[in-house]
């Protein structure tokens, strides 16, 4: 099974991404969490090593931010079938370089995501 997720507290960002996903013909309907903690609870219960996960993750969120989520989820998931795309309004070099420390992060993307990048992600997602 393939699953698509958006973890972002900003409703407008979520709306834009959903619309773009549908424009790009992503077959899956994404599941949305509004902070890291909600997502963490879900994955702790439902993650399986046979499924494939594609996660668009925001960094700045209340309760549990993107980095904290990644720190907590690392022991649960395997980077081979859990692909994280950091999607953030931040353009900070520090965060860009920090994303190299996590194996599951496939790309650091500054919002808004472009059609081209979304298509690349779709290719990868569909090929697995």
């Amino acid at each position: 099974m393939k699953h698509l997720f958006i973890i972002d507290d900003d409703a407008v960002s979520v709306l834009i991404l959903k619309k773009m996903l549908s424009n790009a013909d992503f077959l899956e309907t994404p599941m949305v969490f509004y902070n890291g903690n909600e997502a963490l609870n879900f994955f702790s219960k439902n993650y399986t090593s046979v499924d494939t996960y594609c996660v668009f993750l925001d960094i700045n969120m209340p309760v549990m931010n993107g980095w904290e989520f990644l720190d907590n989820i690392q022991t649960t998931i395997h980077p081979n079938n859990f692909m994280v795309y950091l999607l953030t309004s931040s353009t900070s070099e520090y965060e860009k370089s920090k994303s190299n420390d996590y194996h599951c992060i496939k790309k650091f993307i500054s919002k808004p995501i472009s059609k081209e990048i979304l298509n690349e992600i779709k290719e990868v997602f569909n090929s697995i």
Binding site: N60, S90, S92, S114, K115
Partner: peptide, 21 residues
């Protein structure tokens, strides 16, 4: 600047892209 101000800006950029598409 890098985190807060860029949030609404990235929204505008995303929305204009959607309207153009």
């Amino acid at each position: 600047q890098s985190h807060i101000v860029r949030v609404p800006l990235s929204q505008i950029l995303g929305l204009t892209q959607l309207i153009l598409d």
